[in-house]
Design a protein around this nucleic acid. Structure first.
Lengths: 243, 243
DNA sequence: CGCACCTTTGAATGAGATCAAAGATGGTGG
DNA sequence: CCACCATCTTTGATCTCATTCAAAGGTGCG
């Protein structure tokens, strides 16, 4: 089964103690696979579990009264899914598998135990949640205050930056298993307009595409146009000592 | 000085133990006042402290490369400010006092101590952060996928719901110390268009205004138009035992 | 009282949506 | 292995909601 994916991620930021590592492994005792397209958590359902992503892409979204969909965020290996369960009995969002995925389910009580026993992991999970909040805020600013072209650029920059630290971006070349409709739902645009913007980016030599394959050519210019800030680094100097 | 504002808020969700109460009081040992308009934390600065709001309104915002501003969220009594310091050395956002405010500063180490000593408070702070993330996601969907009128309605609904649990909404009547420019920056609209939308809401009998005073007349219809969901309740059944 | 800031209104402009239809692509079953 | 069907991409024409520009009232603070 290999080590815990969450441990792998947290290991980027701190040197985990043996007992922390054991505790994290226990969060991922079980795993479960889903086909692409599967709805893992459904809006307004009352899920009993959260998940850690072991393999594959997912996204979380909501559908509004007018029938349109907003994709909030994409989730990759090592990401935690379904955390709203910590605050609300009913899920505020739908989580969908974009590709075939493998997930490790865990319950609230299990997390509570871990937090009680390991203050440093507790603090680290809080820091990760805060970082995700900041990342959402970046997206908010992008959608609220920038042009269609900048919104698409920003999404590409974010996905590329996040895949890079997972070793899934080969010099800017990534697998992008999204339809233009998906990209539109993530950026607040129509699929038609996403198409026009992406062709523009190709024409201007910022990216290349064929099929699901995308390559960022001029990352500096792409990020600059998008006002994109990389949030993948994390400050950890303040954490309490390991247990 | 009265009790801790954060304790007051957390007390809505759980019955705090004596020792938890003492720990929370220590977070708010000091306080500091700022005039309205003051920038409390500046984007890209490296703040040394976070704050708990004791009195007044603030907002957090970013300014993008094109010069426009996006307001992410408004903060009221009992809200925590500057949490990004837990994840990033430089602040990703500017925090500004909308009215005269009183804030209680505290450092990361102080929070780390509290989390190490009080697993339940730890979990509760995590739950609050998750809830705020969900609330941001709601805003994202509002801005990404709804009309100008719905966005303004949604903002009014959210502010009203949050002020209500603080006892600051008198049957839908609230103090709204915001310019239409502020509302525009929060909803991704221009001040001019905000003006037209608000007059529309008044004409249709959904709200009333004069000066800084706003009254929600038909909350049901306003929330329905905005696809607004109240996120002020919090699930706490899973928390570890109090210390 | 006067000035700065905010709200309100109108007219022109424009970015992105909508509508429609023609190519591509790929997965599935025969 | 190939043909077919569903889904996705691409392109063009038109429309609309929100922006932009401009200027005239209000309001409150110093």
């Amino acid at each position: 089964m290999g080590g815990s994916c969450l441990a792998e991620r947290l290991g980027h930021y701190v040197r985990l103690s043996a007992s922390e590592r054991v505790a994290l492994d226990r969060l991922e005792e079980h795993d479960r696979s889903y086909r692409r397209g599967t709805i893992v958590i459904s809006e307004n359902d009352a899920p009993r579990e959260m998940f850690i992503v072991r393999q594959g892409w997912l996204h979380s979204s909501v559908v509004l009264g007018n029938g349109s969909r907003q994709i909030m965020r994409f989730q990759f290996r090592g990401d935690m899914i379904g955390l709203p369960l910590l605050a609300f009995p009913d899920s505020p969002e739908t989580v969908t598998a974009v590709t075939d995925v493998t997930l490790c389910p865990f319950g609230r009580e299990r997390l509570a135990q871990l937090m009680a026993a390991h203050p440093r992991l507790s603090a680290l999970v809080l820091a990760l949640t805060v970082a995700e909040r900041v990342s959402l805020a970046d997206r908010l600013a992008s959608i609220g205050r920038t042009s269609a072209r900048a919104r698409v650029s920003s999404l590409i920059c974010e996905i590329n930056a996040r895949l890079r630290i997972l070793g899934l971006s080969d010099g800017g070349a990534i697998q992008l298993p999204l339809t233009q409709e998906d990209i539109g739902d993530a950026t607040g645009l129509t699929a038609v307009h996403v198409n026009r913007m992406m062709r523009g980016l190709v024409e201007d030599g910022l990216i290349e595409r064929n099929g699901n394959h995308l390559r960022v050519i001029d990352e500096g210019r792409l990020c600059a146009e998008a006002s994109f800030v990389d949030r993948t680094a994390l400050e950890t100097g303040w954490l309490p000592p390991a247990q």
